[in-house]
Simulated assay, not measured.
Amino acid sequence: MSDTASGARIEVEGLTKIFPNATAPAVDSIDLEIRAGEFMTLLGPSGSGKTTTLNMIAGFESITSGRIALDDTDIAALPAYKRNLGMVFQNYALFPHMTATENIAFPLRQRKVGKSEIARRVSEALELVHLGGHGERLPTQLSGGQQQRVALARAVVFEPRALLLDEPLGALDKKLRESLQLEISRLHRELGITFVFVTHDQDEALALSDRIAVFRDGHIDQCGTPAELYETPASRFVATFLGDSNVFTGHVRDGLLDTGWCTLRAPAAADGPGALVVRPEHLRLAVGDEPEAGNPNVLSVTVTDIVYQGAFRRVLVRFDDGGTGQVRDTAGVSRSVTIGQRVEVCWSADDGVLVPDDQDPEGADAVPVPAGAR
């Protein structure tokens, strides 16, 4: 591959897509800047607008209004083949009658690249995705992971300045997904081009991304680094969609959250309605001992289940209001709890985050059920 490859900056302004007979826009006037060389992930539940946005950037879907720019050049009116963007699909989209080499060479032949240059680039692309020696195999002679590597090689062989990936690992099993996540991360580092990656898998987004744009109902709820979104979510939706959360809703006054069934110390915030988000790893079990000093929030709960997950265990609990939550507890620690046992959980006020209570009850099935919510 070329040593001069560099990433393109992609900007969308006021981007809108309204499908015929739709009751609401699929994408509703979003603004997003994707920096040159960045790994940007578009994350959200089904129907949130992330794939439609990617398809509009790719040129596979027309826009209703707005602007799409590649390095300050408006490309919204250009057909897909003139945008020079690489694309990787979930279903691989390989030609079944062509070998791996022929599939990878296809975009170069379309661009009328010379035979010797095609041979050089295809050989480099096969090595880049660790498929040297597999070039003469047909797709049916390759595993699912190998087919996806061929699709990746085909998407980058013509040296695009941006690579668009539409849930490329969705059809693979967990272990293979995790292996190819590492490969995609390596490719991003080695190629130095801009990656725009669509997924609904939160763990995948956290593992791969420089930044994540969280989509909901055609809008972007929040955009930031994985750490920013996980540690300081801007809304209850982001908090519950990106990772597990214990959520307590109520009214804040003088640094206290009154839920109607308990009062909790909250981080400093303006008075008014809100939701307190506490990640499971910040809760501590107090079994047979006094709660740890410095943890002003203490609640009695009932253990409903215990899930062993190797390095840690998830202790599922029920709060006294009937809501559910969980504690991420280090496996092997000598805290013995059993299903049905009454225990105390505690946490520091600084370990919680106050966010607007923006949960839509009618759309509750679009996100994981929040814990402790009334």
Rank of each mutant, 00 (worst) to 15 (best):
T101H: 13
T259L: 00
R236M: 14
L182Q: 14
L206G: 03
N295R: 14
A205E: 00
V353C: 01
G192D: 10
Q110W: 02
H134R: 15
R314G: 03
M1A: 13
D173L: 08
T324F: 11
Y230V: 03
G7L: 06
G114C: 03
D166R: 07
T73A: 13
E292D: 09
R236Q: 14
P291W: 02
G132M: 03
D72W: 09
S48D: 10
V129E: 13
C346Y: 00
E292G: 12
M87K: 04
K175T: 09
E183Q: 14
F195T: 04
L163T: 14
I212F: 05
H200P: 08
G272S: 06
I57L: 05
L187V: 09
R154S: 08
S116Q: 15
I57H: 07
D305N: 15
G294V: 04
D210K: 02
V150W: 09
T16P: 01
E11C: 07
G132N: 06
T99V: 13
G170C: 11
I30V: 10
P361W: 11
L176E: 03
Q202Y: 00
G352R: 08
K17S: 08
D3W: 07
Y308H: 14
E102Y: 10
V307F: 09
K174I: 14
E11L: 10
A93Y: 12
R342C: 03
L42Q: 05
R154K: 13
F19V: 02
F106C: 00
T240A: 07
V198W: 07
V287D: 08
R279F: 11
L257I: 02
P25S: 08
S300F: 04
W347K: 04
D217S: 15
R342H: 11
P79V: 15
T324K: 12
V355P: 04
I212H: 02
A213R: 01
I184N: 02
E183R: 04
A100N: 12
S62Y: 02
E362T: 09
L70I: 14
A349W: 00
L131K: 08
F197A: 05
V278C: 00
L187K: 05
V88R: 13
C223M: 05
R314W: 12
L180K: 03
A151P: 15
A151I: 12
H282I: 01
E190V: 10
V198K: 02
K82L: 12
G144W: 05
A36E: 12
L142N: 09
P370L: 05
V345P: 01
L172H: 13
T199G: 06
D254H: 04
D365I: 11
T51Q: 10
F241M: 09
A239P: 12
A205P: 02
F89A: 15
G59N: 10
L152R: 02
A266Q: 08
I10C: 10
T4Y: 05
L78D: 14
G325Y: 07
H130I: 04
E362I: 09
D351S: 08
L32I: 09
V353G: 00
G274L: 02
Q202K: 01
D329M: 04
D244V: 04
A22R: 08
R279K: 15
G86T: 05
T73E: 15
F197K: 02
Q326C: 06
K17W: 06
R265L: 00
A293N: 03
P168Y: 14
V369Y: 06
V157C: 12
R137M: 12
F215N: 09
E228D: 10
V196G: 04
V315D: 08
D350R: 13
F195I: 07
V317C: 05
S185T: 11
K50N: 08
D254T: 06
A100W: 11
I68N: 03
